[in-house]
């Protein structure tokens, strides 16, 4: 589903990612971790062509993302669900509109849009706040709206950048359970997180970004002490 071959990314001569090579199979649930500034978000952005690799090749579902024509990028993005670290909700639209407008692009009729948006919001337990604006929601609720928007289109690939970063532990567990449910339905899930406990307790495959390179597994030595589980964090439930 996701293939990186010797991918490098430079910003103004500074190399952020070097020779990144890894693959994620269809239907897998994979974590990506690393210290802040390691390039997790950059790597995810290259998957939906918000960034282009300086060199190397990236294949997503067989499409060569780095060289695909600009006009095909919307199609690529619509094939995946993306949960952004800062939610990226439309501030002037309510919860229902934020979730359903993706379906509008695909020509889904209004009645069907309503049904699917409601179902997805029910999944994230926000079906009672359909007409609330993002500014009326807590950080956790906004995160869940962003998640609902990513899921409403039943995507083949779900990408999430620090999806539990603003959630308390109970909600973080709920969200991770939700990801697991989605994964069971066949969706490939790639989650960037620096929450070691969460990753450890999940028992899922993990990649660690270390000085611009991707290492297979949870390489704790590459992470700063505070990310290595030295905080007094509760143990997450098995996903």
């Amino acid at each position: 589903m996701i293939e990186f071959y010797s991918v490098a990314k430079e910003y103004h001569g500074r190399r952020v990612l070097k020779d990144v090579t890894f693959q994620v199979g269809r239907g897998e649930f994979v974590f990506l971790t690393g210290p802040s500034g390691a390039g997790k978000s950059t790597l995810l952005k290259m998957l939906f062509r918000a960034e282009r690799p300086t060199s190397g090749q990236i294949l997503v579902n067989g499409m060569n993302v780095g060289i695909m024509p600009h006009g095909r990028v919307p199609e690529l993005r619509r094939s995946m669900g993306i949960v952004f670290q800062d939610y990226k909700l439309l501030p002037t639209r309510n919860v229902f509109e934020n979730v359903s407008f993706v379906l509008k692009f695909l020509g889904v009729p209004m009645s069907e849009r309503k049904r699917r948006a409601y179902q997805t919001l029910r999944l994230v337990e926000l079906h009672h706040r359909l007409s609330a604006l993002p500014e009326e929601l807590s950080g956790g609720e906004q995160q869940r709206v962003a998640l609902a928007r990513a899921l409403v289109n039943d995507p083949e690939l779900l990408i999430a950048d620090e999806p539990t970063g603003n959630l308390d532990h109970r909600l973080a567990n709920e969200v991770m359970k939700l990801f697991a449910q989605i994964n069971v339905r066949g969706t490939t899930v790639l989650v960037a997180s620096h929450d070691m406990d969460l990753i450890r307790s999940s028992g899922r495959r993990c990649f660690t970004l270390d000085r611009g390179r991707v290492l297979e597994g949870l390489v704790e030595a590459a992470l700063p002490p505070q990310a290595q589980g030295k905080r007094d964090l509760p143990v997450h439930e098995e996903l």
Binding site: P74, K88, V102
Partner: peptide, 10 residues
């Protein structure tokens, strides 16, 4: 920017 990121056609 958000519309672009979620794949809205131009």
């Amino acid at each position: 920017e958000i519309l672009r990121l979620v794949g809205a056609p131009e």
